[in-house]
């Protein structure tokens, strides 16, 4: 096998990209990156680049999927044709169908679906550049996008994979390691509750190796969880401070106009026509 020829981890335990066995690739998450979507987020995880967008709760299509007692969560994982070395045939293949399914299951557990009966919450995960570990990165970023959409959730869902190279258990394989790796174990683990929401595995691991991998994954997920929360905090503390600033600057105007804005969109036309005019202006420009 190729693994005999290429050394993926050196004597001092350093991997090809300079990481230690239990070290994650650098992860950056940004919340609220798209205009049209109800919520969105972008992640760079090593060389992975992935966008997630959330629409909903909205009408279910096709209608037979509708659940009268709760919302359904439909994730669609998709890889761009240019995201990998050899062009990937565009469209939905069997791998994407399966990944979408396991991600949807994990999401459905954390969303308060009972709050939105008869609706769907659609989550689109677009892999723009892939470098191994995209399902974990996709799930990680999708849950930030859900939070950005303001959808009530029990928790964020951090996700990460462990694997085996040169007979050693390591965290978060990148492409070159994944190609020659001997096992791959992606999980999603919620630190606050200790729940495992996604788990797949292929390759070859003894029970003890699995045990070791799981330990690594639990602390990795804790680390990713912090990065997710930071992304949201950054977005919303910025937004909040901007709003506050705007409010102070317009404080004189606001105190006069605000009541009319509030009355604005009611069905009953107010008697004073000047208020209606003010209102339309305000609505048109401020939104």
């Amino acid at each position: 096998m190729m693994t005999d020829e290429i050394q993926l981890i050196d004597e001092s335990g350093i991997r090809l990209d300079g990481r230690r066995a239990d070290e994650l690739r650098p992860i950056k998450i940004e919340a609220g990156v798209l205009k049209n979507a109800d919520g969105s987020a972008y992640i760079e995880w090593g060389k992975n680049k992935i966008l997630a967008a959330v629409y909903g709760p909205r009408e279910v299509h096709p209608r037979h999927l509708m659940n009268p007692s709760r919302a359904i969560v439909q994730c669609k994982y998709n890889m761009a044709a240019f995201s990998v070395g050899d062009r990937k045939r565009p469209g939905y293949d069997r791998r994407s169908v399966e990944i979408s399914k396991v991600i949807s299951d994990a999401m459905e557990h954390v969303v308060f679906t009972e709050r939105f009966p008869r609706t769907t919450i659609d989550v689109f995960i677009e892999v723009i550049q892939a470098n191994a570990g995209t399902r974990c990165a996709g799930l990680t970023v999708a849950s930030v996008a859900l939070a950005d959409a303001g959808i009530p959730m029990r928790d964020l869902v951090p996700s990460c994979a462990a694997g085996k190279i040169d007979n050693q258990v390591v965290l978060d394989l990148f492409k070159d390691e994944d190609n020659y790796g001997e096992a791959d174990l992606p999980i999603a683990y919620v630190p606050r509750t200790g729940k495992i929401l996604l788990l797949q595995m292929d390759g070859h691991m003894t029970y003890d190796e699995f045990d070791k991998a799981l330990d690594m994954l639990v602390s990795a997920c804790e680390e990713i969880y912090t990065i997710q929360r930071d992304a949201l905090r950054r977005k919303y503390s910025e937004d909040a401070s901007e709003k506050l600033l705007a409010e102070i600057q317009n404080s004189n105007l606001a105190s006069i106009e605000q009541p009319s804005i509030l009355e604005g969109s009611t069905d009953i036309p107010p008697e004073d026509s000047t208020i209606i005019t003010d209102n339309r202006k305000g609505g048109g420009f401020n939104d």
């Binding site: 396991v102 729940k195 495992i196 929401l197 029970y207």
Partner: peptide, 30 residues
């Protein structure tokens, strides 16, 4: 496999496993 080593796993449905549950499930499967 015949040595009891794990070759593939797949979790399904929208519920969860705790770490200890996971470990006992694997031992049961073996």
């Amino acid at each position: 496999d015949e040595n009891g080593d794990i070759r593939a796993m797949q979790k399904g449905n929208d519920g969860y496993f705790e770490v200890d549950e996971l470990k006992s499930a694997i031992k049961m499967a073996q």
